[in-house]
Design a protein around this nucleic acid. Structure first.
Length: 339
DNA sequence: AATGTAGACAACCGCACATAA
DNA sequence: CTTATGTGCGGTTGTCTACAT
């Protein structure tokens, strides 16, 4: 039987036998994989190189962590997915010992359903309108959601229990922030959250140490004045500008590949113009943002706003280099506004 | 007990990209 | 510059198992 990637050779397909596994492990541990296409020949396997590579990466590698996902891992997957979308390989990099395939399967079989049962679109992490849900049959449930027509809406990730025995990674009420989400059909709005975001920390020196959730010290309680409406004509992009630092705290919207665009600054009632020190501080922050945007710009073309063509791995490395880790993404993505 | 169904996971397929010839 | 080859990735399909009818 032929195989597309191996041409004429007849190769075995389907599940791997323990004997095949043994051969592959023996070969790779003693000689390394080198060129994957030559592995089957040298290891005495009737498989294609691609299949050997996949088997090794997804199943046989010694550093792989087996077993159910922990609640912390699940939270990381949700957080990173909110930013990166279906970039499973990138998401898996945040979870040592997990493979992209494993993450993808876990997402499709478990997390996706949880989100949908909460009325959230697993693609955008936004609330699904009742119309969308009934027409798309998302979640398979027609249970009406009282908040469908509202925005913004606070959704607590702790409300849904696992329906399957294997979904061991329950969302943890103590570590899950209340996230403010917006109906994608409504004009975007930036609003502070009802509760402070939490950051999760982990002792890098001690991999076995438990994750701890800490309230974001920079969080300020919402005030009536802090709600800000932003209108836009763009309708297709789902990019979260706040995540990218494209919108800074002085209403400065940064366009890709262009100089920052200073939106008209309207003083709120009772607000006083800033002193020179405040201005300096804001300029400093703006510069930091610009540094990051400049770095991103180097790797982005004019189609930045098409999320499909955006280099997320570069963004990630940029975020990392500025000290932002995946565990900080909770608070970053909490101000999700999509259009 | 037999059959159907859904979920979990493993594996495959096709495409895109990088690099060497 | 073009072509061939290898690798990585995301989407999809296949298989096994547990549970329901």
């Amino acid at each position: 039987m032929g195989h597309r990637c191996c041409g004429k050779q007849k190769v075995k397909r389907g599940l791997w036998s323990p004997e095949e596994d043994e051969k592959l492990i023996k070969h790779i541990t003693t000689r390394g994989h080198g060129s994957w296409s030559s592995v089957p020949k040298h290891a005495g396997l009737q498989r294609c190189g691609k299949s050997c590579r996949l088997r090794w990466i997804n199943y046989l590698r010694p550093e792989l962590k087996r077993g159910s996902f922990t609640p912390e891992e699940e939270q990381i997957i949700i957080d990173v997915h909110r930013i990166l979308g279906n970039r499973w390989a990138q998401i898996a990099k945040h979870l040592p010992g997990r493979t992209d395939n494993e993450v993808k399967n876990f997402w499709n079989s478990c997390i996706k359903k949880k989100l949908m049962s909460q009325g959230l679109d697993p693609k955008t992490h936004n609330l699904i309108s009742s119309h969308q849900r009934s027409s798309n049959k998302i979640g398979g449930s027609s249970r009406p959601q009282p908040h469908d027509q509202q925005k913004p809406i606070s959704v607590n990730f702790t409300t849904v229990n696992s329906q399957k025995k294997n979904c061991s990674a329950e969302l943890n009420s103590s570590s899950s922030p209340i996230v403010t989400l917006y109906n994608a059909q409504q004009p975007p709005m930036v609003q502070t959250m009802a509760t402070p975001p939490t950051h999760q920390y982990h002792d890098d020196q001690n991999p076995n140490a438990a994750w701890t959730s800490v309230k974001d010290p920079t969080f300020h309680e919402p005030s009536a004045e802090s709600t800000l409406n932003i209108s836009s004509s763009s309708s297709s992009s789902s990019m979260n500008l706040s995540v990218f630092g494209l919108l800074d705290n002085s209403n400065c919207l940064y366009a890709a590949g262009a100089q920052p665009f200073e939106a008209p600054r309207i003083l709120l009632e009772g607000e006083q113009s800033m002193g020179s020190e405040e201005v300096l501080q804001q300029e400093k922050e703006k510069l930091l943002d610009m540094e990051m945007i400049k770095a991103i710009d180097q790797d982005m073309d004019a189609s930045l706003m098409e999320s499909s063509s955006f280099d997320f791995s570069f963004l990630e490395s940029t975020l990392m280099s500025t000290g932002v880790t995946s565990h900080d993404l909770n608070s970053m993505a909490d101000f999700a506004w999509n259009y």
